[in-house]
Nucleic acid binder design. Sequence first.
DNA 1: TTTTTTATGGACCAATCGGTCCACTTTAAG
DNA 2: CTTAAAGTGGACCGATTGGTCCATAAAAAA
Lengths: 194, 194
Amino acid sequence: MARPREFDEEEVLKTTLRLFWEKGYESTSLSDLMAATGLTKSSLYKAFGSKEELFWRVVERYQRDFLDFRHAALAEPTPRRIAERLLDGITALHSGEMNPVGCLELNTALTGSKEGEPIRQELLRGREQFRLRLRERFEETMAAAPLPPGMTSDDAASLIISLIQGLAVQAKAGASLETARRVARAALLSWPES
Amino acid sequence: MARPREFDEEEVLKTTLRLFWEKGYESTSLSDLMAATGLTKSSLYKAFGSKEELFWRVVERYQRDFLDFRHAALAEPTPRRIAERLLDGITALHSGEMNPVGCLELNTALTGSKEGEPIRQELLRGREQFRLRLRERFEETMAAAPLPPGMTSDDAASLIISLIQGLAVQAKAGASLETARRVARAALLSWPES
DNA sequence: TTTTTTATGGACCAATCGGTCCACTTTAAG
DNA sequence: CTTAAAGTGGACCGATTGGTCCATAAAAAA
């Protein structure tokens, strides 16, 4: 019963996702968002509340649309298969032609002003939560196929997380798809086949 | 033949190193630097030229004082020993009680405004240069002791670099010394002892 | 057609950014 | 003692930051 939106919210979220992904939260300015979406500040704030709320909407979409491979990976029946699918998924994510390089969350989480600290903390919490889920799955599946001898599920989870972050940094630095693939393959050399 | 400095340049560089290290280049403001050093903008600019020139002075010191373990590592006689010393060095760096967490260069290199782009590119160049030196040393020393079977010197160098970056991210996220040590050990499980 | 409700454009805000400028001080050389 | 050179403090600069406010526009409900 009022004036209708002149823009497509989905479209705007898609556009802002690309921006935040590429530059992280703090380095993406309202001006950037306005220029990329064609919207005015008023429309953005009316529709999304604030820069931060818009960001969280975007993170939600990011996880749903681009980090979905994590669920499939965790469902695999052996440690090696889990690790493989995780590293493959990350590699594919970073080499997607249409995707900005790097990881939205990592690009946001590393540095920034004091104002951005709560956001970084929150992202960090999510990452640690995933690490715990990964460790749990390693624990559950190491009966089906062992981890590399001498490696605990905790070691393995931390190692894989470190590799994922490392690959994200490399991607941001311009590493090629082949490089990422070879790193992933090399990292798993000692992981027993199921 | 003029008025003498009222501050110790070494001391100022030490202080600004800590700031840039913790927050990266762009997230460290002139106000931060002034507050931490007790100097005015005039003194800083007179002594160092600009924020960027000061930053490069600081990077120089960082590499000299904190990244020196890389030289020792590259001088080791086998691939595994090289990799070990690199990962140990990074682990020690990130767990130093007096050090800010994370890596000065990584904290600067990931995101920022368009103005900071040249700085990020330059840091990136240095990183790639080190990767090439590492690959070269793997190539030279793999006669003395082999790399893990199926891993080329290029794979190995990219893998170790990825791990180093990953460990830096983890450190920034608050990972403990023990965690870092276990990741390093786990990563090298399949590397033949010399 | 009038009223109500929402959307939009743009002016405006204080705070902060890196950087410049200049008056003033302090020292050593002459 | 004068002069020249360098250091210092602080006012000032334009640009940019995220965010607010209000007048106007548009459409559905009455």
